Computed example of a mutant assay.
Amino acid sequence: MLRRLRDLARHLKGELLALSHAARDSRTPWPARLLALLVLAYALSPIDLIPDFIPVLGQLDDLLLVPAGLWLALRLIPPPVIADARAQAAAQPARLARSLWGLLLMLGLYALAVGLLWRWWASR
């Protein structure tokens, strides 16, 4: 079982790398590119929606949100683009590093969500 989980994690990392190549491809439609960038920003950001120190829920958001976002982003990208991106990822297996831009994007999204919640609460 542990080996299967390692294989699944390795596959997920490969798919995230392929998604990063596909997001840079000019043939990718802009909605798919935007979703791909959001998924990559969340996956590579050092902060999570639910912090990892919260038992079970902290890991559950990573186990559900990242694969679901990855699945949806891959479905929105044309198959030839994904095939080329997977070939690039296999030819150049690079490690996806933590992203400062991903961190800033996630912080911005969290600030926007808090601002909208505050505005909604204040108007009541």
Rank of each mutant, 00 (worst) to 15 (best):
R3F: 14
R3V: 09
R4V: 08
R4T: 09
L5E: 14
L5Y: 13
L8Y: 12
A9G: 09
A9V: 08
R10L: 13
H11S: 12
H11L: 15
K13T: 07
E15A: 13
E15K: 11
E15Y: 05
L16I: 04
L17Q: 14
L17K: 09
L19K: 04
L19V: 05
S20L: 06
H21I: 02
H21Q: 10
A22G: 00
A23K: 03
A23H: 08
R24T: 02
R24P: 00
R24M: 08
D25C: 01
S26E: 13
T28R: 06
T28D: 00
T28F: 03
W30P: 05
P31T: 10
A32S: 02
R33S: 06
R33D: 01
R33M: 07
R33Y: 07
L34W: 12
L35R: 02
L35M: 11
L37Q: 13
L37R: 15
L38W: 06
V39D: 00
V39Y: 01
V39P: 00
A43F: 06
A43W: 03
A43M: 02
A43C: 02
L44C: 05
S45N: 11
S45Q: 02
S45K: 03
S45T: 04
P46M: 12
P46T: 07
I47G: 02
I47A: 08
D48T: 09
D48P: 02
L49N: 01
I50Q: 01
I50N: 04
I50F: 09
I50E: 02
I50P: 00
P51R: 11
P51W: 11
P51V: 03
P51F: 09
P51N: 07
D52W: 11
D52V: 13
F53G: 01
F53V: 10
I54F: 15
I54A: 10
P55S: 06
P55H: 12
V56M: 11
L57T: 08
L57R: 09
G58C: 01
Q59M: 05
Q59F: 13
L60W: 12
L60C: 04
D61M: 09
D62S: 14
L63S: 10
L63E: 05
L63F: 13
L64P: 00
L64T: 14
L64G: 00
V66K: 13
P67Q: 12
A68I: 13
G69Y: 07
L70N: 07
L70Y: 14
L72E: 10
L72R: 14
L74G: 08
R75S: 11
R75C: 14
R75G: 08
L76M: 15
I77F: 08
I77S: 06
I77E: 11
I77H: 09
P78L: 03
P78R: 09
P79G: 03
P79E: 12
P80C: 04
V81S: 05
V81H: 11
I82H: 04
I82L: 13
I82K: 06
I82V: 15
A83P: 01
R86C: 04
A87R: 15
A89F: 02
A89G: 00
A89P: 00
A91S: 10
A94P: 00
A94R: 15
A94F: 04
R95L: 11
R95C: 05
R98T: 10
R98L: 14
R98N: 01
R98A: 10
S99H: 12
